[in-house]
């Protein structure tokens, strides 16, 4: 067992883990943050995407110990403390971009990073390519693409304030 200290959704935690403990296991099993999901074992579905120091990362393909000292944001930490949804969450709801909800946390976290890293704007094609690492079986992606396009101006307007 080794110790890892990391900040998750603004709160610092020191946790005992094994060498093999994955970041997603730490989040789900040690911290009870079950919003981050595991949908595959080959790093392809993206249900486990979280932000590490602001960047989208597959938490199933990351050892917990690699995240020592890191700042992690999960789906549970995206909305404001008073429950106000992040614009991306709001647009997913507005555009019916989720059905069963299982891929949704990873999809939203990927989408937030995608929009943040493209302040200049995103074409529909770029959005679709940006979702390369996230599988959804319910929606056919159509409304997810619409939601992300709609969130882009909202997020950048908010950032400019």
């Amino acid at each position: 067992m080794a110790q890892v200290t990391l900040t998750v959704n603004g709160k610092q935690h020191t946790v005992e883990v094994e060498g093999r403990t994955l970041l997603v296991e730490l989040l789900r099993e040690k911290l009870g943050l079950t919003g981050t999901h595991i949908g595959c074992d080959t790093s392809q579905c993206g249900a486990c995407v979280v932000h590490i120091d602001g960047m989208s990362v597959k938490s199933c393909t990351q050892l917990a110990l690699q995240a020592d000292g890191a700042n992690i944001l999960t789906i549970e930490g995206l909305a404001e403390a008073d429950g106000t949804l992040h614009p991306m969450q709001e647009m997913f709801r507005e555009h019916h971009a989720l059905q069963c909800g299982f891929c949704t946390p990873g999809m939203v976290m990927t989408a937030v990073d995608l929009v943040q890293s493209h302040p200049e704007g995103l074409s529909e094609k770029e959005i679709r390519e940006g979702l390369e690492g996230n599988l959804c079986r319910c929606t056919g992606y159509h409304n997810i693409v619409k939601a992300i396009a709609a969130a882009h101006p909202l997020m950048h307007a908010q950032a400019a304030e």
Partner: peptide
Amino acid sequence: VRRKEDLRFLSGKGNYTDD
């Protein structure tokens, strides 16, 4: 009507069996 269930799914509060 926008979906009732979305609030929990979008904030990581879903309750799936593995949770």
